[in-house]
Simulated assay, not measured.
Amino acid sequence: MIRHFGSLRTIWSASAVALDKALAEVGGRGCESCGEGGWAVGAAIVAARHLAEAAAREALVGEAVDTRTPEFRHYLVRRLGLRREECVMILYFTGEGLFIAEDFYSSGQRGEVVIPLRRTVRRAFDLDARRLVVAHNHPSGSALPSDADVAATARMRAVVEALEVGLDDHCIVAGNAIASMRSMGLM
């Protein structure tokens, strides 16, 4: 697996599909000492990652979150920084900035991900969220927003703000780097 992914951090952030593919390429040997197939190794990695993500998310619940703090940026890097496919996270907050929940979407493709605007609005209403933050990754390694990122953010902002939900920021994560579209004056 190390030869396929290059590092433990990359294995940790790989999708279930990518793990299954890599394990199939090495013959599905997986955990030979315990007699399990390769799928069990991939499933265990994904389960451990989900547990760690839930623990990190739990630390945010009910807390006032500022997207500029090192703690929040570290959270985004851990969730998105090393993924090989583009993913988007929508984070929901109260009017006072208290974290409520997050939704995570992955297209399974390297070059694009779509912000599910209708689902995001519905979820914001269900949670009575008053503020949102969008975050997504660029597997290319450049955290700079593309023209498509800027256009999608403007469209989303127009829709949610017309419904009295604020879009606080759109953060782009590439490895350990984060670009804030708000800080860059792009929103």
Score class of each variant (00 low, 15 high):
1 M>A: 15
2 I>A: 10
2 I>V: 11
3 R>L: 08
4 H>I: 13
6 G>D: 12
10 T>R: 15
10 T>G: 12
11 I>C: 14
11 I>R: 13
12 W>D: 10
15 S>R: 11
15 S>H: 08
15 S>P: 10
18 A>L: 11
18 A>E: 15
19 L>D: 01
20 D>W: 03
22 A>C: 08
22 A>N: 08
24 A>V: 11
25 E>D: 14
27 G>K: 07
28 G>R: 05
30 G>P: 06
33 S>G: 03
34 C>I: 03
35 G>N: 04
35 G>E: 01
37 G>A: 11
43 A>S: 12
45 I>P: 00
45 I>H: 01
47 A>L: 06
49 R>F: 02
50 H>I: 00
50 H>D: 11
50 H>R: 13
51 L>A: 14
52 A>Q: 01
52 A>F: 01
52 A>T: 01
53 E>W: 02
57 R>M: 04
57 R>K: 11
58 E>K: 14
58 E>M: 05
59 A>K: 13
63 E>D: 00
66 D>K: 04
66 D>P: 03
66 D>E: 07
68 R>Y: 03
69 T>E: 04
70 P>V: 04
71 E>V: 05
73 R>Y: 00
73 R>W: 01
74 H>W: 00
74 H>I: 00
75 Y>P: 03
80 L>K: 09
83 R>V: 01
84 R>W: 05
87 C>N: 14
87 C>A: 13
89 M>E: 10
89 M>C: 08
89 M>I: 09
92 Y>P: 11
93 F>S: 05
96 E>Y: 01
96 E>N: 06
103 D>E: 11
104 F>Q: 00
105 Y>R: 02
105 Y>I: 05
106 S>T: 01
106 S>A: 14
107 S>Y: 00
108 G>I: 02
110 R>Y: 07
111 G>W: 08
111 G>E: 14
112 E>K: 09
114 V>K: 11
114 V>T: 13
116 P>V: 06
118 R>D: 13
118 R>E: 13
122 R>E: 15
123 R>L: 04
123 R>G: 03
124 A>M: 04
124 A>T: 07
125 F>E: 11
126 D>N: 10
127 L>D: 02
128 D>M: 05
129 A>Q: 07
129 A>M: 03
130 R>Y: 00
130 R>K: 15
133 V>Y: 06
135 A>I: 05
136 H>S: 12
137 N>H: 03
138 H>E: 02
138 H>F: 06
141 G>P: 13
141 G>R: 10
142 S>A: 03
142 S>V: 00
144 L>C: 09
144 L>Q: 15
146 S>L: 12
147 D>V: 06
148 A>L: 09
149 D>K: 10
150 V>A: 06
152 A>H: 07
153 T>I: 06
154 A>R: 15
155 R>A: 13
155 R>Y: 02
156 M>G: 14
157 R>I: 01
161 E>V: 04
162 A>L: 08
162 A>I: 01
163 L>N: 15
164 E>M: 06
164 E>G: 03
165 V>M: 12
166 G>M: 07
167 L>E: 04
170 H>F: 11
170 H>T: 12
170 H>C: 15
171 C>R: 08
171 C>Y: 02
172 I>S: 03
173 V>F: 08
174 A>P: 09
174 A>G: 06
175 G>F: 07
176 N>G: 12
179 A>R: 10
181 M>T: 09
182 R>Q: 10
183 S>I: 02
185 G>H: 05
